[in-house]
Design a protein around this nucleic acid. Structure first.
Length: 263
DNA sequence: CGTCCACGTCTAC
DNA sequence: TAGACCTGGACGG
């Protein structure tokens, strides 16, 4: 997906573009099989002729995002192509699937070409770990305290996609973290984490670097801030680079790594 | 035309 | 540990 940096950028984008906005309606694109979403009930409004008004604030952790809609939270995951876009009402992008309408003629849309993204009235997923950029100490503590678990028998290259411990790390971030840490991706996660402290440190700093750069300029994710497309691809030193090797991991995902490591 | 590939989960055998 | 879920861009014939 959109990985940690893109979720964080999306939250920032939503908070900036929704600042001071009052919303009064929500619609779902009927082509999408996801949950219908209605504005939360407002106990102070009794007449059905009065539209329920609400505000929107966003918060991200790892690969999840909460939209605070008055006192309720709508949780999103972005799949491979989800993102948010504020437009004038009537100018919504193709593949907009959940639309939030302001009283003054704007629409905040959840846009998702492939429709792998999801939403639900919910809070943070219990099966996900700490965001390494927000709660770095807890992120490290959680991993250190659970190093004996079977999950850390796996090669570090695979374990880095385990969202129970590495919430927010995705395919490009794992490649960049391993590469910059000079880490053999096929060593067991337990040994790698024990012997190479750079791994956990880079789970914090590399997503933050991607965030500062304006996030992924890969095909399926439209950067809401319109950063120059080149900067991000130049920043990536491993993922997608010529001269790097790839192998399909256990989940069929392509793991990018320095060819000096033999698998 | 066709085949392969893509920043991710899910759930079913 | 395969598919399933989806669209569309790149590239080959």
């Amino acid at each position: 997906m959109p990985e940690l940096a893109e979720l964080k950028l999306s939250a920032q984008y939503i908070n900036e573009s929704c600042k001071g906005k009052i919303f009064d309606n929500i619609k779902k694109n009927p082509v999408h099989k996801g949950h219908e979403v209605h504005p939360p009930l407002d106990a102070t409004v009794y007449s059905d002729r009065v539209r329920i008004e609400f505000t929107i604030k966003a918060e991200s952790r790892g690969k999840e995002m909460l939209l605070h809609i008055n006192d309720s939270t709508l949780k999103f995951t972005f799949g491979m192509s989800g993102h948010f876009k504020m437009t004038k009402t009537g100018e919504e992008r193709k593949h907009s699937h959940l639309m939030f309408y302001t009283k003054d003629g704007y629409t905040l849309s959840f846009v998702d070409v492939r429709r792998f993204g999801k939403w639900k009235w919910d809070t943070w997923g219990k099966a996900r770990g700490f965001d390494p950029t927000i709660d770095y100490k807890d992120f490290c503590k959680d991993i250190q305290e659970n190093l004996h678990q079977r999950a850390f028998d796996r090669p570090i290259g695979e374990a880095l996609l385990n969202q129970r411990y590495f919430n927010g790390i995705g395919n490009y971030l794992r490649a960049e973290i391993l590469y910059k840490a000079d880490q053999n991706p096929f060593e067991s996660a337990r040994d790698a984490i024990t012997n190479n402290p750079k791994i956990l440190a880079y789970c914090n700093s590399i997503p933050l670097e991607a965030f500062v750069l304006g996030g992924g300029q890969l095909k399926q994710w439209e950067n809401p801030f319109g950063v120059e497309p080149d900067r991000f691809t130049k920043w990536m030193k491993c993922y997608g680079n010529q001269g790097m090797k790839t192998v399909k991991d256990r989940n069929g995902r392509r793991l990018w790594f320095d060819p000096k490591w033999k698998n």
